Computed example of a mutant assay.
Amino acid sequence: MVTEADPDEARSSVWLAVRPAAPVRRRSEAPSGLDRDRITAATVRLLDAEGLSRFSMRRLAAELGVTAMSLYWYVDTRHDLLELALDSALGGLRLPAGPAAREDWPDRLRILARGYRGLLAEHPWVAPLSAAYPNIGPHARAFDAALQRLLDAAGLVGTGRTGAHLALSQFLTGSGLNGCGGSGRRAPEADFGLALDVLIAGIEAKAADRTGRRGHDTP
C-alpha cells in the first residue's frame, strides 16, 4: 500500500465517515478562506507537481498559506484527504452516456479504457491510490457503473460478468502502476491496445459461449 506508515488497525473510508453538520469547536475559531473543496483541489495540484512520496499535510498547509492544524477542521486524517483527491481526479474522466448497444460496446470500452489511461498519465499518483484505497467515492462509482453498463451490453451475467469486471478493473489500474509488461515503465500504446483487445476477445468468447449453451438448452 502506498500510503504513510501507520499502526495495523482498521481504517474506515472517508466516504463512510459521518461528519457532524458543524464543527464541535466555535465557528469563530475556524480558519477563514478554507473549505474541503479548496483543500482537495490544492492536494491534487500538489500531487501532480511533486508526487505522492513528497506529499505531506505540512507541505499542503504551506501551499495554502495556513497552519497544518487548520486542515484538520475539514479532514480527519491524511488518508481521508488522499481519498478525496483520488475521487476528485477521477471526476476528470469522460464517461459514455447511456446504455451501450450490443454491437458497439467494444468500441465504447476502448474509448473508456484509453481515457482512463490518459488520466493515469496526467495524474501518476492515481493508480497507486486506486490500489491502496476503496474506490467508493461518487466519481469512482460513476466509472464503475459505466463499466457495468458495457458488460450488460456484452451479455455477461453471473460469474462470467464478475470475472470480466475484475479483469478489466485490475488491468486498467495495473496499466498505470507498472505498464502491461511489468517493467515499471508506461507500456507503449500499441501494447496497451493489444492487451485490451485480448480482454475484449475473452469477454466476447465468454458471452458467446453463454449464448450458445442457452440456445442448446432451448427445446
Rank of each mutant, 00 (worst) to 15 (best):
F143R: 08
A164V: 00
L166V: 13
D191H: 06
A205H: 10
L151D: 07
A167G: 06
A146F: 08
G184A: 13
L168I: 14
R161L: 11
Q148M: 08
S183R: 14
A208C: 09
L147T: 01
A207C: 14
L194V: 14
G181M: 09
Q170N: 13
T162H: 10
G184R: 11
C180F: 03
G163Q: 09
R186I: 04
D191K: 01
L150A: 13
G160Y: 04
C180P: 02
A153R: 06
G202P: 02
F192E: 10
A208S: 15
A154D: 05
L151M: 14
E189V: 07
D144C: 09
G202F: 00
E204Y: 03
G160R: 11
P188V: 14
G193H: 07
A187H: 07
G160F: 06
D197Q: 11
L166D: 14
C180M: 15
G193T: 09
L177N: 06
I136C: 04
A208Q: 13
D144Q: 12
R186Y: 07
A207K: 01
A154C: 10
G193K: 09
V157Q: 07
A195G: 06
A153K: 09
A195D: 10
L194W: 11
T173F: 05
N178I: 09
E204W: 03
R149H: 06
D197H: 01
G163V: 05
N178S: 13
A146M: 09
G182A: 12
G184V: 10
P138D: 09
P188D: 15
T159E: 15
L172H: 02
G179D: 07
L156R: 00
G202H: 03
T159P: 09
N178C: 11
D152I: 02
A207T: 10
L156A: 01
A154V: 02
G202L: 02
D144L: 11
K206P: 02
R141A: 07
A153E: 13
L177K: 03
T162Y: 05
A201K: 05
G137N: 09
F192A: 07
A190Y: 07
A208L: 13
G193D: 14
I136A: 00
A167Y: 09
G163W: 04
L166F: 13
G163P: 02
A205C: 13
Q170L: 08
D197F: 01
G137M: 02
G137T: 10
H165F: 12
A205R: 15
L172S: 08
H165G: 14
G202S: 05
Q170P: 01
L151I: 12
R161V: 08
G163D: 11
G158D: 13
F143H: 12
L177A: 04
G181I: 00
D197Y: 00
R186H: 08
G176D: 08
H165Q: 15
A167N: 11
L151T: 06
G181S: 10
L147K: 02
H139T: 11
T173R: 10
F192V: 07
G179C: 06
A164H: 01
G202Y: 00
G155N: 12
V157C: 05
D197C: 04
H139P: 04
